[in-house]
Design a protein around this nucleic acid. Structure first.
Lengths: 121, 121
DNA sequence: ACTCGTTGTTCACAAGTCGGTCACGAGGGC
DNA sequence: GCCCTCGTGACCGACTTGTGAACAACGAGT
């Protein structure tokens, strides 16, 4: 048995994360993450705009569809769940960064890098 | 780019599983598995897409042929039977992973390596 | 034709997971 | 301090998945 490389479009890469939206599969350093439907949709929504700040409203619309009622904490809760699962596989990495008052940003840097250098980009 | 398993000589390999679709034979660490026709077809369908999540609908179509009626639990039942037989031969391994809401994935890694025993989410 | 073992299918209940919400606490800005 | 935002554990109803059991269909052997 051998393996051959295959080009697959529609995949998203963010650092050591590989996300296959069509399939519902996310890999962290090659290991499959066991994500629920909501968790996966949230990860996809963040990954599609990796590196940029995405507001809660926009995330809510992407994942739940429709406008977010004020006071709804669903996005926060699912960000927390997603962080937990990512952290279990890649303990030294931080992917989801909070920008208080603005939203969340997916980026593969350790959080300490944010305070050493620039936040732009 | 990623890699996918390719059958060079008509055989499929997934971890210590060796599957010969033409012969109807499946070996686990060299030992033959006693599988029924349905069980074998399901294993082949999963093995052909090893490492990826395969939906129930697709598995049903591969094994039974034709669309799955909603509420049909045949796939679940046969996954359970297959797991039982694999486990008898390779007790420490877990091959068939459930991705709730998505489908099943065949992969030779023990699930506890991924989650340290807890899969809460 | 009868019996025996096997298989495929379906059912029913058990077990587990998910999604949504709440509550409480930490931390920052004023 | 007070207010606001955010993180997260806990809870619970709804849903999904796991699996033993029942049973009919089938084939092989006698």
């Amino acid at each position: 048995m051998r393996t051959v490389p295959v080009a697959v479009d529609g995949m998203l890469h963010v650092g050591e994360l590989e996300i296959r939206p069509d399939e519902g599969l996310a890999l962290a350093s090659g290991q499959a993450l066991m994500l629920s439907v909501r968790e996966f949709a949230l990860l996809v929504a963040l990954a599609r705009r990796a590196g940029t700040i995405v507001s809660r409203e926009e995330l809510y619309d992407s994942v739940w569809g429709g406008p977010m009622r004020s006071g709804d904490r669903s996005v926060d809760v699912y960000v927390s769940k997603l962080r937990g699962k990512l952290e279990r596989v890649l303990p030294d990495r931080r992917f989801i960064h909070t920008h208080a008052g603005f939203g969340y940003r997916l980026h593969p840097q350790p959080s300490r890098d944010l305070y050493n250098g620039s936040i732009a980009g």
